[in-house]
Structure formats: structure tokens, C-alpha cells
């Protein structure tokens, strides 16, 4: 059973992850990840990543490359970083084992494309997280983002979603 305090702890983790992404705090965000990381944005909810192409399918190495690129100062599609704020809601948490949780939340994200058009982009969907307790601290093992419009033409997705 998921205790009240575990529930609080997992929610706090999701909110922190959201804030670090919103504020393009690249180091802080990268530090949340476990070694067996998967950062995944498929084009449809039940896509098979072995046979279908995804918008993003980053393992830990590729997350590190993504962060190095964002921090290079010349990732022009995120230079300067998009001002962003997202809201998480409809959170559901399940305890998978003694030290693992699966959580899911709906999100709505306002992103301002200051690098070019200055369009306010609205992103929305459901994020599914897998968290593991390592040395007393929660780590992010996977984040799968199901965009409502994942199979439609979308704008640049080079910020942290």
C-alpha cells in the first residue's frame, strides 16, 4: 500500500521535476535521472519503439548529450530558453515494489518560442513516470510523455518536456 507520506514524496518529486524543466535548469533536471533512464515521447500511446520512430527516445547517454547541447550556448532553437510554465493535475500513483513507483499526471504547458516566432505554444498530454528509491532518494527511471497532438505536425520540441 502506498502510504500518505510516500504519496506526498512522489508528488513533490513530480512538481520539482516540472519546475526544473520549466526553468530550463539543465543540471538540476539531469541530476534527477537514474542510470537506466528512458526519456520518451512516442507518436502514439501504444507505439512499439523497436519498429516505430518516436519524437524522442533518449537513454541516459543521449539525455547527457541533449543536456550538453542545450548548455552549449548555441542550441539556437533554445537560445534563449523558452519561458515555460506547466501545470500537473489528475495525479495517480501506484507502488510497484518496495522501492519503485509508477506515477501519471496530466499536464498543460505554456511555452513561449522567444527564439523565433514568439508564438505561445500550448502543449498538453499525460506523462507517465517510473521512480525508484536509490540511497534514500527518489530517482527518475523513465518519463513517457503522451502528447495529445503527438501524431500531428508540432513545433520545435527541443526544450525539456
Amino acid at each position: 500500500m502506498l502510504s500518505e507520506s510516500e504519496c506526498r514524496e512522489v508528488e513533490a518529486f513530480l512538481f520539482k521535476e516540472a519546475r526544473l524543466a520549466d526553468e530550463s535548469d539543465y543540471d538540476g533536471w539531469e541530476a534527477l535521472w537514474a542510470d537506466d533512464a528512458l526519456y520518451w515521447v512516442p507518436t502514439r500511446p501504444d507505439a512499439d519503439p523497436e519498429t516505430e520512430v518516436s519524437h524522442i527516445y533518449d537513454n541516459r547517454t543521449r539525455i547527457a548529450t541533449r543536456i550538453r547541447q542545450l548548455k552549449s550556448g548555441v542550441r539556437y532553437s533554445q537560445t534563449p530558453a523558452s519561458p515555460m510554465r506547466r501545470v500537473l493535475s489528475n495525479i495517480e500513483i501506484e507502488k510497484m515494489s518496495d522501492d519503485e513507483y509508477e506515477a501519471a499526471a496530466n499536464f498543460m504547458l505554456m511555452e513561449l518560442a522567444v527564439q523565433s516566432t514568439r508564438n505561445m505554444n500550448l502543449w498538453g498530454g499525460r506523462a507517465i513516470y517510473r521512480l525508484r528509491r536509490e540511497g534514500g532518494k527518489l530517482r527518475l527511471c523513465s518519463k513517457k510523455i503522451l502528447l495529445v497532438d503527438a501524431d500531428e505536425p508540432i513545433a520545435n520540441l527541443s526544450f525539456l518536456i
Partner: peptide, 15 residues
């Protein structure tokens, strides 16, 4: 693609 390491820059330059 929009989330990749190359095309977002091409899109940004085109815009």
C-alpha cells in the same frame, strides 16, 4: 524531427 538534435535548429533558422 522536432525533438531531435538537428532539425530544431533548421526550423528555427527558417523561421
Amino acid at each position: 524531427g522536432p525533438g531531435s538534435f538537428l532539425l530544431p535548429e533548421d526550423a528555427c533558422m527558417a523561421e
